[in-house]
Amino acid sequence: MQLNDVESRLLDVFEAILEHPVSREVNRQSDGAWDSLRHMQLVFAVEAAFPVQFGEEEIPRLNSFRDFLERIGDPNAPSTHQ
């Protein structure tokens, strides 16, 4: 399956911040490098790379690649929020 531009750029951000290769399935629980410090780094880096700003309350709910992707507004991203 081809990655679209947004996904590809977002993966780029994730890999730069987490400092290792990641897949679209990466999430906060499964990735040991994704601690609270890196979490804020991800938030800041995604905000710098995309026209998006996260609210204080939603920051702790961004727990996976897909959460970020959905919030950025990619129409192909399946929702992970229940």
Partner: peptide, 14 residues
Amino acid sequence: DLRAARYTGTCLGD
């Protein structure tokens, strides 16, 4: 960046 203060432990913006 007061949003971040809760998570980073400092109010300094990125």
